[in-house]
Amino acid sequence: MAIKGSTGEVRPGTRWGYAVAVWGVLFAIPSFLWAAGGTFGAESTVAPELVRLARDGVPWFLAVLWVTGFLKLFGAVIGLGLTRLRGRRTSRALVFCGGGAAVLLGWHGGLFLVHGILVETGAASVDPALAGLTRWYLYLWGPWFIAGGLAFATATARYLRRHPDHRDHRSARHRAALGALGALLLSLASTATGIG
């Protein structure tokens, strides 16, 4: 049994942080693969214009893929960080990033699911050539993003519950909410510009 409150110790309920780490690493693999010029798995599961940008080696898009891959690995590091008690400053950063990632991923996955459901029920239409792609977003990418968001949310909430420096849960929740708001604004901006 771990000693309560000692920094760096593994505590019960940390499997969610490890789940986040595994999720982040697995999610980074396609980004790095596609950034390196491969299109395995992208042809049928990703929008054709994005596949074309990767296949043509468009520099700005390749840079986006590399950055995205490293951000996913950073998410894995956040997950590992949430498995052990940390000092106050590091803890604040973990809570901020964990809350932000939870909302960003949940929102993004939710958009995929809603769009897919609307198409599948006939409430919205897409080019028939993209109908199969819509199903990939509905059945693979939407749930994948939501699973990551739920893992981040759970890991962050459990971290907050067991960290002795977060007895003032209100300020910790404010940091998580601030990260979530920033993530939501980032998602809205990327959607509005057509990048996300």
Rank of each mutant, 00 (worst) to 15 (best):
residue 116 G to I: 03
residue 116 G to M: 02
residue 80 L to K: 03
residue 186 L to N: 13
residue 131 A to S: 10
residue 107 W to V: 13
residue 186 L to I: 08
residue 108 H to Y: 15
residue 155 A to F: 03
residue 92 R to W: 03
residue 178 L to Y: 14
residue 63 A to G: 05
residue 100 G to V: 06
residue 99 G to F: 08
residue 163 H to Q: 09
residue 186 L to Y: 13
residue 68 T to A: 00
residue 120 E to I: 13
residue 183 A to L: 12
residue 63 A to H: 07
residue 135 R to L: 07
residue 91 S to A: 14
residue 139 Y to F: 14
residue 124 A to W: 02
residue 97 C to R: 10
residue 90 T to M: 13
residue 78 I to H: 03
residue 81 G to P: 02
residue 99 G to C: 11
residue 169 H to D: 09
residue 150 L to Q: 06
residue 180 A to L: 13
residue 82 L to T: 03
residue 62 L to H: 09
residue 148 G to M: 04
residue 155 A to W: 02
residue 98 G to E: 01
residue 95 V to K: 03
residue 143 P to Y: 06
residue 173 R to L: 14
residue 83 T to G: 05
residue 74 F to I: 01
residue 160 L to W: 10
residue 72 K to T: 00
residue 76 A to L: 06
residue 179 G to K: 04
residue 89 R to S: 12
residue 158 R to L: 11
residue 172 A to Y: 04
residue 84 R to D: 05
residue 112 F to H: 15
residue 129 A to D: 04
residue 92 R to C: 05
residue 63 A to N: 07
residue 100 G to Q: 02
residue 146 I to M: 08
residue 121 T to V: 09
residue 148 G to D: 01
residue 157 A to Y: 08
residue 83 T to L: 03
residue 66 W to Q: 09
residue 87 G to M: 12
residue 85 L to M: 08
residue 68 T to P: 00
residue 91 S to F: 12
residue 69 G to D: 01
residue 68 T to H: 00
residue 95 V to N: 05
residue 185 L to A: 15
residue 118 L to T: 02
residue 187 S to Y: 14
residue 131 A to G: 07
residue 96 F to S: 07
residue 135 R to S: 09
residue 122 G to P: 00
residue 113 L to M: 15
residue 118 L to M: 11
residue 143 P to T: 02
residue 171 S to Y: 11
residue 94 L to P: 09
residue 169 H to V: 14
residue 122 G to H: 02
residue 152 F to T: 01
residue 181 L to A: 15
residue 84 R to G: 09
residue 87 G to R: 15
residue 93 A to C: 07
residue 82 L to M: 07
residue 176 A to N: 06
residue 141 W to A: 11
residue 188 L to V: 01
residue 65 L to K: 10
residue 152 F to L: 07
residue 161 R to A: 15
residue 164 P to A: 14
residue 75 G to Y: 02
residue 134 T to Y: 07
residue 70 F to R: 05
residue 126 V to M: 08
residue 104 L to M: 15
residue 154 T to W: 05
residue 174 H to E: 15
residue 58 V to K: 10
residue 141 W to K: 10
residue 69 G to C: 06
residue 119 V to K: 01
residue 147 A to F: 00
residue 95 V to C: 09
residue 182 G to Q: 09
residue 113 L to F: 12
residue 179 G to W: 03
residue 92 R to E: 10
residue 60 W to M: 00
residue 72 K to H: 04
residue 139 Y to E: 10
residue 132 G to I: 04
residue 97 C to N: 13
residue 113 L to E: 10
residue 97 C to A: 13
residue 139 Y to C: 14
residue 138 L to Y: 12
residue 97 C to P: 11
residue 155 A to Q: 02
residue 123 A to N: 10
residue 166 H to P: 10
residue 62 L to T: 08
residue 84 R to P: 00
residue 130 L to V: 06
residue 139 Y to G: 14
residue 138 L to P: 12
residue 96 F to A: 06
